[in-house]
Design a protein around this nucleic acid. Structure first.
Lengths: 335, 335
DNA sequence: CGTTTCCATGAAAACGGTTCCACCTTGGAC
DNA sequence: GTCCAAGGTGGAACCGTTTTCATGGAAACG
């Protein structure tokens, strides 16, 4: 740029990066020229020599709902603190597509956060982890670094809550079969029933897909059951929303006729009628931790392949008929 | 890389970019080497000479809710078709922060999409538009390119609907005062009342902030009004969710005691009880169009400073007491 | 006053691609 | 048998930074 600022490029670099000594007067001239010419250094040229792009790539499954906003927000916030940027890429159905995007991303990011709950994809990721710092989100990690929601634990605590309230026949509105989160939550349902000495027959399980519509469909299924369950554990809140609306149409009351427990604690959960008892997942924190993780991987190059589990928390509201909520907004969580 | 592939860098470049002629046999050798070495070209080096990063920066306000997932999804999808990447950056409260991020982004993106509904920020953007292709989203554009939701039109159609149903006293649950979307929707409310020969007194307007909680607060406000309105136009669906829950607690029925109209048509709107009459905003399309726009700006360098308006659509459900919905999922929209 | 140290600065190499240009080969036209 | 065109390939310049090394001058030290 401003070699027209009367100095060498070396000096400009020194001023801009605050490396090496520069005379006060020189610095003044440079910053003035920068301001005047509205100069911004060329990121590509810089990363060419530095071998860093200061960018983290984020691969997400088809993004919808409040979940991903939250997640990206958490990531972006912590990335920014270290002056890193976030390159997002979404909608990866199959393994082939994931690999394609991964290729395109390499060479322009310093690290990768990959969320790919589809159990088929996970194995394909292993080889990329060797060449590029990478953190998996909610995926079977193998030898890679990973951060996972405590799906199993959360499901168990919800089930304990339901069983504790006297429910003996608890249905599961499950998520996609190939989704790891869904599987773990289902496992929690099954194991908890077993522990309580209760059966977990397949006819008490409805295969949803995490979207509201499938929750709505589950309403008809529930109504048609020979022996109706007294409670339903819904593998995520979105489906609970759909189910709730279906139950109302059918004329079943919640929680009097059927108790309902969700998962995720999306913001609207507390505003449903009745307010939804659910399992809170600290989504933004999940994103933030993943980002921290990949950034620290960048520094240390330690291939720690550590699995971190983010805890969940049961949030009791009215939809299960537990001792009533004190306030409408949020009974159990103080802050 | 594979100068060890037995060819020159020139040839490798030609193979990878499909420029210039290459013998079939040579191409084979190169691709084999690429595969073997798992080679990916260095994006920085490429962009250094090409003057293109194949990346579009996206600046968003603090992101939460389903809206931004949808928006980013639309952007990412169309960007991918042209092999472009998306660099997101969120949470820009003030003008200073926006400028800071803008600086950091320049030099590493080919174009910019900026969503900044805060009316204070818009003027500061003008100077950046000259140096970098830029499209504004829901902002006062001045001489810049912009794509806007038809907030005013949507609000008017909702108001016409309410007036047509016989409502004469229609309150507004407004959004943030400095938010352009909120302003336009409020303007639609005011003008529509005027057209119908009805008053729009300030006491019929509650200042919310687009979040669920403020909708909930509005419930108490509504109940305390001396002469209660027969309908409420809520400036977005999230606040409608909060208000709906508050009304239920208070014991007011929707739509019998109060009719409710929202804005956005977020996915859960149809699953509320009653299903929410609202104004549909094609969010993903908004993102997609913005991306198309900035990409075409890249090609043509025509500073078209054109303002594009994305139309909205009234979706009639049960919350206003209009002639009943036929199905629970979506009465008026076919697809 | 000579020597050493340190500060301030610039010259030049390096980073890894793309692209212009030149070169060589081959096949067809005359 | 020449000449020319076109296909296939490599050499080298260039893009804009960072970084190492060298240099000149001033200050500190003996």
């Amino acid at each position: 740029m401003a070699r027209a600022a009367g100095v060498s490029v070396t000096t400009v670099s020194r001023v801009l990066n605050a490396t090496g000594p520069v005379a006060e007067e020189t610095r003044g001239r440079v910053t003035a020229a920068v301001e005047l010419l509205d100069y911004v250094p060329h990121g590509g040229a810089r990363s060419l020599i530095t071998r860093r792009t200061e960018t983290i790539g984020v691969l997400l499954p088809d993004l919808y709902g409040e979940f991903f906003s939250e997640l990206i927000r958490g990531m972006d916030q912590t990335a920014r603190l270290q002056r890193f940027h976030v390159l997002v890429s979404s909608a990866h159905s199959g393994r082939a597509e994931v690999e394609e995007v991964l290729r395109a991303l390499r060479g322009r990011v310093d690290g990768l956060i990959v969320m790919s709950p589809d159990v088929d994809v996970a194995p394909a990721l292993a080889r990329y982890g060797e060449t590029l710092p990478m953190v998996l989100l909610d995926a079977e990690a193998g030898r890679l670094d990973a951060i996972t929601i405590d799906n199993y634990g959360g499901a168990c605590s919800m089930m304990r809550h339901l069983v504790g309230l006297g429910h003996r026949r608890i249905a599961l509105l499950a998520g996609p079969a190939r989704n790891l989160d869904a599987r773990e939550r289902a496992r929690g349902w099954r194991d908890s029933l077993g522990e309580a000495g209760l059966p977990a027959p397949p006819e008490l399980c409805f295969a949803g897909d995490f979207a509201e519509a499938s929750g709505h469909e589950a309403g008809a299924w529930l109504a048609a059951l020979a022996r109706r369950p007294t409670a339903v554990f819904t593998a995520n809140d979105s489906m609970a929303v759909g189910l709730l609306s279906a139950l109302r149409e059918i004329g079943l009351r919640v929680p009097e006729d059927v108790a309902l427990g969700g998962f995720d604690d999306i913001p609207i959960a507390r505003y449903l009628s009745p307010p939804l008892t659910t399992v809170r997942v600290p989504i933004a924190e999940l994103g933030s931790r993943a980002m921290q993780r990949v950034l620290s991987l960048l520094e240390s190059r330690e291939p720690a392949h550590r699995h971190e589990v983010v805890p969940t928390q049961l949030v009791v509201r009215a939809s299960c008929g537990a001792p009533a909520a004190r306030t409408s907004t949020d009974p159990t969580i103080g802050g």
